[in-house]
Design a protein around this nucleic acid. Sequence first.
DNA 1: ACATGGATGGAAACCGGTTCCCGAGGCGGA
DNA 2: TCCGCCTCGGGAACCGGTTTCCATCCATGT
Lengths: 353, 353
Amino acid sequence: MTRKSEDAGRSTIRDVAARAGVSASTVSRVLGGVYPVSSQTRTRVLRAVRDLDYVADARAKAVAGVGTPTLAFVLEDITGPSFALMAHGVEREATRLGHLCLVCSTEGDVRNEVEFVEMMRAQRAAAVILVGGAADTSEYRERTRRMADSLASAGSRLVLCGRPPLGPGAPVTVIEYDNEGGAFALVAHVLAQGHRRVLFLGGKPDHTTAQGRERGFLAAHRARGLEPDPALLLNGDFTRDAGHRLMRGALKDGLDFTAVVAATDMVAAGALTALHEAGLDVPRDVSLAGYDDIPYARDLHPALTTVHVPYEELGRLAVRTALGRTTEAPAEHLLLGTHVVVRDSVAALPARP
Amino acid sequence: MTRKSEDAGRSTIRDVAARAGVSASTVSRVLGGVYPVSSQTRTRVLRAVRDLDYVADARAKAVAGVGTPTLAFVLEDITGPSFALMAHGVEREATRLGHLCLVCSTEGDVRNEVEFVEMMRAQRAAAVILVGGAADTSEYRERTRRMADSLASAGSRLVLCGRPPLGPGAPVTVIEYDNEGGAFALVAHVLAQGHRRVLFLGGKPDHTTAQGRERGFLAAHRARGLEPDPALLLNGDFTRDAGHRLMRGALKDGLDFTAVVAATDMVAAGALTALHEAGLDVPRDVSLAGYDDIPYARDLHPALTTVHVPYEELGRLAVRTALGRTTEAPAEHLLLGTHVVVRDSVAALPARP
DNA sequence: ACATGGATGGAAACCGGTTCCCGAGGCGGA
DNA sequence: TCCGCCTCGGGAACCGGTTTCCATCCATGT
């Protein structure tokens, strides 16, 4: 029993053509739309298409040069709320512009990152968006530069979101948000409430996002003529658990502070729980501030004072600039502003007895 | 000035062949690996590949039948924490199994959903995972059934995650978690603490996830011989804002209750904030429970008692069953268990004066 | 010395589409 | 009536790969 390709699975354009009694080119033209086809032929072809439930193979179309373009999104972990927000922005804008959206999680492993970028180049992705902070080492610059060149030579484009920019001349689009400025404004707000000993729960020391926020922390102090106590600068990472652990340690060590500024809202959430566990009231006993303005920030108790970062807009902007570019401009660098959101977790320091 | 295709962008396998002085087949064989090639030729080819920074076009490979398979993930909004968790599980397992991962957000619009599924069929995705609850109408069944058949006839497979199953015989894999059982256990726990008037903050009435949780709520009451007051069953949706609004309304209306069970943790978060705003203490004045065990649940204050749903595992399982299937078994239905996580937001009801 | 066979690499067909090129009719105008 | 244009549709080349088939070449066995 000979099997026509019709009975099982994917039917090809030639199957449709055979069933409609026309040539493959005609089927393609009917489906394509613009070429003149008699209404009788069109009807027959469309009937065959419907009968066979035919859909043209998108990969084959792509190879012929008329496919749906694709855009790739590489991040560490979609689970983080700010990453999810950016992913959402990217995805929305990508589909709005008629692109498909490939997503890859690196799980923080650099090898995965370069491997993914290579795969995306093979996929002929229109752009590759790389998200999330990184250590600004020379190894980083070199590796990222290589990826950028490689993508550029393939007609694609690398976009760095919240990552350290490369040197000038790298074919890369960098979109950052103002970590230093946001932290400066936030800490200035805390200091304006009278606090003088502010604990900083930072991220990894070589992570540029963490560095920017720490710089803002320091600058805000100095702008008031204060010199922050180095003992109040703690390092961890951007997770809830780090915040919890660091806060618990600070409390156990008897560190002297009246306010806490966490490098992210997740860190702040962990710290808040540690404070509660120690029987402390926020903001009566200790003030607390976060960074990122994740959706849950306002449902913490007290509602968290934090810095709003337009993550979703960032994602949208990333794909828009990556895709909308007409010229071969070598580099672009956008810096998005942030603003502090005052809620209930920072209170004025009462005059000490 | 004639341009060789070498100078700008994507070089083809023939460019590499020309540069290495061999035929395209030889390049393919060197890159493919298994076919015997003299080490001298291999070296020349690899040199040319490196010089041109050549990567084979994945789409062309796919059309030739040797591509990286793809898996599609369609959800409403990646921003929701449980969705993000599932997405993470899907993504991890997909890359572990050597698949690429396409993601689409429907923004809750059914038209987007069928359109995306159609696109994924055109992409020849190995499986399409559809996530998130839906109303179990006949229109839903019909539409989903059509998508399932259509994918199956193309050699692909539809996976429903946390969605109502179709009738028997539909070529679909359904993976659900036990909404009714989880809610039953949770509410039983609340009732065991002595609460008798429990407010239920539900989701959309025709949403099967919401229905399951409501059934569990009712069943737990009846198992104790209690008949819940219909006035304590409120409907909204699964957002934080709905929880906030509903809770505020209940307080303003002077509803009589000593405990609140929310249909999701997000709803609980909004409700908690509303309770705090009303000056109520949880759990002293009112007990509160959620559902989903999102990562932030334990950083609410008080830490939220809730039902743990293995979302990430769910995502992993979805791709494993969708991809690992060897036979053409027409339907599968998996039900994952849940368990309640007791934290601090539900307390015993003190004997009333 | 000659047949044999394994190693090596090129030509061509194929995957599933699109599009260029051209020929066959139908129709109107000269 | 004949010519030319316009409409329509088929054949073939092409996109960028892989794989089958076959022709060499060289080393070995007898």
